[in-house]
């Protein structure tokens, strides 16, 4: 299946995010070998050069490393992956609060709603 990509952002960024997500969520385990650029590109239905660029960027952040002869691997550094995971979680939370602000909820109200949602309440009981 071709990967779902947004229309308005650079494709290599989206490919990076997707692979990061796959690493963090455990689809790829630390130390796993990545498929070849060509295979990944065919799988995602994107240009191999774009996939190459995404992987090079990931290499620069250290999430992926390449061995000259045998290909590309996911980093063994579990700490780095954990850090990445936390980073991504923070990103989501920030986005979430931004959205809530737009809807007119203060941080306190938002937190309150989260607690209640977790307790299993489905309706607001403000009245």
């Amino acid at each position: 299946m071709p990967w779902n990509l947004d229309d308005d952002r650079p494709i290599y960024l989206q490919l990076m995010e997707r692979i990061q997500h796959d690493i963090v969520s455990g689809t790829y385990q630390p130390g796993d070998k990545l498929p070849s650029v060509r295979d990944l590109a065919v799988d995602a239905a994107v240009n191999p050069n774009t996939m190459q660029k995404a992987l090079s960027e990931l290499e620069r952040c250290g999430l992926v490393y390449s061995q000259r002869t045998s290909g590309r691997f996911i980093t063994d550094d579990a700490g780095l992956i954990r850090q990445m995971r936390t980073e991504m979680a923070k990103e989501h939370i920030r986005d979430f609060f931004v959205q809530m602000h737009k809807l007119g909820f203060s941080d306190e109200e938002t937190l309150d709603m989260i607690r209640r949602t977790l307790k299993g309440e489905t309706h607001e009981t403000d009245s």
Partner: peptide, 30 residues
């Protein structure tokens, strides 16, 4: 998604010649 580069032709002339990601970065659109 499979293109590196795009060339826009308009009335027999090239009106744009750039990479896909440049278009997305520069114009913020596909």
């Amino acid at each position: 998604q499979v293109l590196d580069h795009v060339i826009f032709l308009q009335n027999g002339q090239i009106s744009l010649n750039t990479s896909v990601d440049e278009i997305r970065t520069e114009y913020g659109k596909s």
